[in-house]
Design a protein around this nucleic acid. Sequence first.
DNA 1: TAAAATCCCTAGTAAATTAGTTGTCTTACG
DNA 2: CGTAAGACAACTAATTTACTAGGGATTTTA
Lengths: 152, 152
Amino acid sequence: MKLSTRSRYGLKAVIDLAIAYGAGPVSLPVLAGSQGISEGYLEQLLRELKKGNVVDTVRGAQGGYELTCDPAELSVQRVLNLLEGSTAIVDCVGTLHHNCTSACSCSARPLFLKLQTRINDVLARTTIRELADDYVQQKARGIPCKNICEKA
Amino acid sequence: MKLSTRSRYGLKAVIDLAIAYGAGPVSLPVLAGSQGISEGYLEQLLRELKKGNVVDTVRGAQGGYELTCDPAELSVQRVLNLLEGSTAIVDCVGTLHHNCTSACSCSARPLFLKLQTRINDVLARTTIRELADDYVQQKARGIPCKNICEKA
DNA sequence: TAAAATCCCTAGTAAATTAGTTGTCTTACG
DNA sequence: CGTAAGACAACTAATTTACTAGGGATTTTA
């Protein structure tokens, strides 16, 4: 059930781009530096997002990445689908072809369907803009860290 | 985001045990045969469930596995937590210790928390009894397979 | 009491996935 | 032209997943 680092890194990069939306492209070194990860790895993720038409690129000096649309119009679902390949928890409830020959007689399928519906609901309703706004506001208010960062 | 086969096999085995609840233990060969998987593999999963006190065992001939409690009192969450180790989508929203040092300044954390809440909600509210009942009824009515099993 | 049916446990392994790294090429700005 | 950027492919290392193998312990039953 874990979300891959691909998804986590990629999603955060998209949020960074949302914050910079309208202010010109952001370069890979800046995006990677913001998360402290390698440029090579993040580049792969951004390329997937470009293929999916979520980001656009500007080559050459002063170039970089930028969102193709307003963050308010961009759902988390769309982003994660590109990064993760699919957001289905089991193949037999995904939108694409599946290869479970016993889906109809599967005792756990009702659960899977219910779970998937709830997950899709959150992912489809949540926009990148919301996440970016939350983040900016949180930073502005300087909310202190309470018990969250403690290691066990 | 995928659920492992551990979870799928293990969960289905628990549903099988729920259907047989009160009628004596069910042996490993029967449980494994029901899903067409190897006994050795399923045994590992059942052992985890035993450790977690979800199933009990009876050794020797006519022995097998049985649920320790009424399926109506058994949540899917408890079962999956044992099989999957944790049902957290990212470590920083799990109940156990996590090692993300920047959880407090993480731009995607609000999403993760919301998602996890919805997932936990479904998992905690859904009982094994419900799944078993659904399954038994579906079988009894002989609902035909509509478009679900077609391969793409 | 011996044989058969069960669960118990550890260790190993093969395949797949994840998480990267490296290096070369292309494009554009100044 | 030189430098700052992205584009792309290929390779690798580490981890996780999904098993398999095989012997041991316990209980029933003939």
